[in-house]
């Protein structure tokens, strides 16, 4: 049995002071998803078998599935718990130490990137029919990956590791092929989620 939806008919509209239980739980579960994806072993891809980690994939997916505010909350929750010492940063690291290292910029970028991409995802859902969403999800996540995630990542390496812009940019380049693939997977997966659970974000946005 899976009638999960409370129908919204006949002008029943209760004022919602804060998030409903549904959103609260989704934010918490997606924070956990980001955490788990950072600690499970990567997936070997293609004939080279280079493992790609799933963390950026999880962050992009969270944004595409939950929308701006809730995605930022999920990433924020994940960061707070990881800073507090649960070993859920990539490679099983934890604590405020991460802010000292080379990946500090990427970590911070997740928060900003999730919010911006989530807002874009809401826009895509409002504008485009289900069939064309994969393409626009992909374009939006590519844009956010390149501008925000890699932007902050390069900035982080420049500040923490005192690298020059050029050196940081080259160090960052290695992540591009994997990230483009991840954005594509995220776009396909997110549109599948919206088909399977139309009221996770679609109906919220359309009613708004």
């Amino acid at each position: 049995m899976s009638q999960k939806t409370a129908p919204h008919g006949q002008g029943i509209s209760r004022p919602r002071r804060t998030w409903d239980a549904q959103s609260l739980a989704l934010v918490a579960v997606f924070a956990a998803l980001i955490a788990v994806s950072a600690i499970v072993p990567g997936i070997p891809v293609g004939s080279f078998g280079v493992p790609i980690t799933l963390q950026t994939l999880a962050v992009v997916l969270t944004a595409l599935v939950l929308g701006g505010t809730r995605a930022a909350a999920a990433v924020g929750l994940y960061l707070i718990v990881a800073f507090a010492g649960l070993p859920i940063f990539s490679g099983g690291r934890a604590g405020l130490q991460i802010l000292a290292g080379g990946s500090a910029g990427y970590v911070v970028s997740f928060l900003v990137g999730a919010y911006v991409l989530g807002v874009l995802a809401e826009l895509v859902i409002r504008r485009f029919a289900a069939a064309r969403r994969v393409l626009w999800f992909f374009i939006a996540s590519l844009l956010v990956s390149v501008v925000i995630i890699h932007g902050f990542g390069v900035l982080g390496m420049m500040i923490n590791l005192k690298l020059s812009w050029n050196a940081a940019f080259v160090a960052d380049l290695a992540y591009y092929p994997g990230d483009i693939l991840k954005d594509l997977v995220a776009a396909v997966a997110a549109s599948a989620v919206h088909r399977a659970f139309p009221d996770v974000l679609v109906r919220r946005v359309k009613r708004a």
Binding site: Q22, A28, F30, L33, G46, L61, V65, V185, V188, V193
Partner: peptide
Amino acid sequence: LERSVRARALPVVLSAVAYGRRTGEALA
């Protein structure tokens, strides 16, 4: 399909959403 990112990622996300909804329902 162990090398397919999609086959590895999609079911996890779908079950995460379903799990989140069940939890939300229980909270409500």
